[in-house]
Each structure stands twice: as C-alpha cells, then as structure tokens.
Write a protein that binds this DNA or RNA. Structure first.
Lengths: 191, 191
DNA sequence: ATACGATTTGACCAAATAGTCAAGAGGGTA
DNA sequence: TACCCTCTTGACTATTTGGTCAAATCGTAT
C-alpha cells in the first residue's frame, strides 16, 4: 500500500502541475485526485514543493529518457525514427503544451530548486538529441557536423513549435514547423 | 493624477506578472510597487485579472508592434535590420524569458480570457514577421517563398531560443540558435 | 496474541489572498 | 461659499492556502 499511495501522489501531482502550473496547483485538488489525505501526504513528502520536484524528476525525466532513448539505442534508421517521433501528434498535448517548457517558463527565474532540477532535465533532453545525431553521423546517415548545435536548434524549434500550437490553438502550426525542421535536417543528409 | 495612477498600476502589474507569472503575482506587491492603495486600484479596474489583461495588452502588444513595426515600415534592408534585431541581446531578458511565451504557457489552457488575449498578440507577432518577409521579397532581397510559413518557423525558433537560454542559464544558447536561424533564412536570399 | 513501526485520518491553525466599503480629500464650477 | 464628481484612504471580510498534529489503524515479525 505504501508505494501505491506515494505513486498516486506523484501521478496526481504531475497532472495537476502540468495542467495548472506549480503556483496554480492546489494541494487540495492533488489530494482529492489521488484519494489521499493530507497527513498521509506529509508522511511521504516534507512539503508541496518537494513533492512537485519529485513528480517532475520521476515523470518528465523518465518520459523524455525512454521516448528518445529508444531511438538512440536502436540499430539504425536513426533519422527516420526521429522524424516519425517528431511527426507523431498523438504523443503531444497541444492544449497543455510541453510539461518541461511550461515549468521552465514559470519557475526557473523564481525558485532555485526548480531551476536546478529543470536545468538537469533540459540538459538531458538536449543530450539525447545530440546522441541521436551522433549515431546518425556514425551510421553514415548524415554528414559530419556540429551535432551539439543541431541538437540545440532542434530542441529550440520543437519547443517553439509546441508553444505556437498552444498559442494559436491550431495543431497545424506544430506540424508545419516540424516539417520545416525535418527538411532542414535532411539537408545534412549525405551529399 | 488620474492617468498617472493608472499608468503606475499598469507598469507595476506588467513587471510583477512578468517576474512571477499571473498566478504568482501578488496584488499587495503590485500596489506597493505602484505606490497605490487598494481601493484606488479598484476604482480603475474591476479586479486583478482585468488589470493584468490590460497590462498585457498595453505593454506587450505595443512593445512587439513598435519593435518590429519599425523594420517593416523602413525603406529597405529589411532582412539586415531583422538580423540586427535578432542578434541584439540587449533587448532580451534571458532570466525572465519572453513575456508573451511565459503567459501563453501559464495561462492559455487555464483561462479563456487570457487565451483570447494572448491569441491576438501572438497572431500579431507572427503577422509582423510575415510582413517583414513580404517586404523583403518585394524588394528583391529574397526569393519568392511561403512567407507565412517562414514567419511561423522564425517565431517558433525565436521563442524556443529564448526558452533554451532561460532553461540552461546560458545566453549563448540564444545567440547560437539565432545564428542558425539567420543562416537558414539567408538560404532564401536571391540565388 | 502482542508489540511496534509504518501509515492513515481529519480536525485544526496561521498566513496570505483577492475583494469590499464607508468615509474623506481634492479640485473645479456655479 | 457650496456643490459635485473623481479619486484616495485604509480598515475590514471571507475564503483559500499550505502545513501541523495527536490519535487511530494497519501490517508484520516475534
């Protein structure tokens, strides 16, 4: 039962924070959705902030890692797989945007602990992209280039594309942006 | 005195919301910074939300409009001017990020009134970019292309670049991203 | 069965929050 | 001077917030 309760809290916290931001996340709602009482929550976490940080670390980091790590660790067609993933609208929630970007925008300049935590996750995110490009270069799918820069550019555009769709309320803005990114990356293909 | 008070409230609200987000903006702090008493504020605005929406409209919209409008309405070297602006780090606050993006991320999926207001500003933003590219095409600075798409791509990357710098705490991420965008746009130059 | 640490319960608290309001100050006009 | 409308003052309220705590319960090992 112990791990169950803790996990329900993590899940509910992640959802609440994703939907309303950290500052807008009401502890009462988290508890109601998790079906956990207040005192019980304070048995597992010292306060709201630590619980939110745990939820972020465990949910977002893991999500990014598994999603892109799979591509990196496959045995070929790295770029093709990356493009499939970028084009997949089903893994995105355009209404709510990017969980990581939302939190960076809201919290990075407000709270040091959030800042530290988000820095790590964001760096991981970029690193995974770089790794995929490194593999692609090694496999001869694209020519030698500054993969770190390309990863930065890709992540920036990806985040901007998600933001555009959220701002306009039109998911086509995401797909159009991503399509342009893909054709840009394709210009790095062998040739 | 009347307009003075109102303007101080708008300015202080904008700063507070920019720094802490709307949900984290404390009315008490806004009032203290503006040097205005509570009842006085409620004479000018019906509530906190309307005051914030007014601040957003008046400050952000105007800011974007004037900043980019000037380029659009100049008489040549459109791309060159745009690049100068993009490269200008002095007009950016990398710690706090983009005032528009911050609010979109925080509020678009939470509150309809914010959503409507931000949609308008974001559309304006993209439209100004498109207009600059249209002028550049007309002036023969770049070849015919889908300027709407190019504007979308540019704005997405710009917002992503600002986010990257905020997330990593390193403004070079912004400059590097923007440099890549510029060289991409230059590939549209006549030839 | 008993004991004991890990969990759960829900009432309670202090602080902060946005918003209200009645009284008054100020300045212009008749 | 008297009037009136705009604006200001600051005390007050209702509500929500995150957080505390002591007592009850559960689960398991002895």
């Amino acid at each position: 039962m112990k791990e169950n309760t803790r996990q329900r809290l993590i899940d509910a916290t992640y959802e609440e924070v994703y939907s309303h931001g950290y500052q807008g996340a009401a502890l009462a709602d988290i508890l109601a959705n998790a079906g956990v009482h207040k005192g019980s929550m304070y048995h597992f976490f010292p306060n709201k902030k630590e619980m939110a940080l745990s939820a972020i670390k465990e949910k977002i980091a893991q999500r990014f890692a598994t999603r892109y790590q799979a591509i990196k660790e496959s045995d070929g067609d790295y770029l093709k797989q990356l493009f499939v993933m970028l084009r997949d609208g089903n893994i995105r929630d355009f209404k709510r945007g990017c969980p990581l970007a939302n939190l960076v925008q809201e919290m990075s300049n407000i709270d040091e602990d959030f800042d530290r935590t988000l820095k790590v996750i964001y760096a991981q995110f970029r690193k995974v992209f770089k790794s995929i490009y490194d593999e692609a270069v090694r496999a001869g799918e694209m020519r030698e280039c500054d993969t770190r820069q390309l990863a930065l550019f890709s992540v920036a555009l990806l985040e901007g594309a998600i933001l555009s769709a959220k701002a306009s309320g039109d998911s086509r803005d995401y797909f159009d942006s991503v399509e342009m990114l893909i054709s840009y990356i394709e210009s790095y293909k062998h040739g």
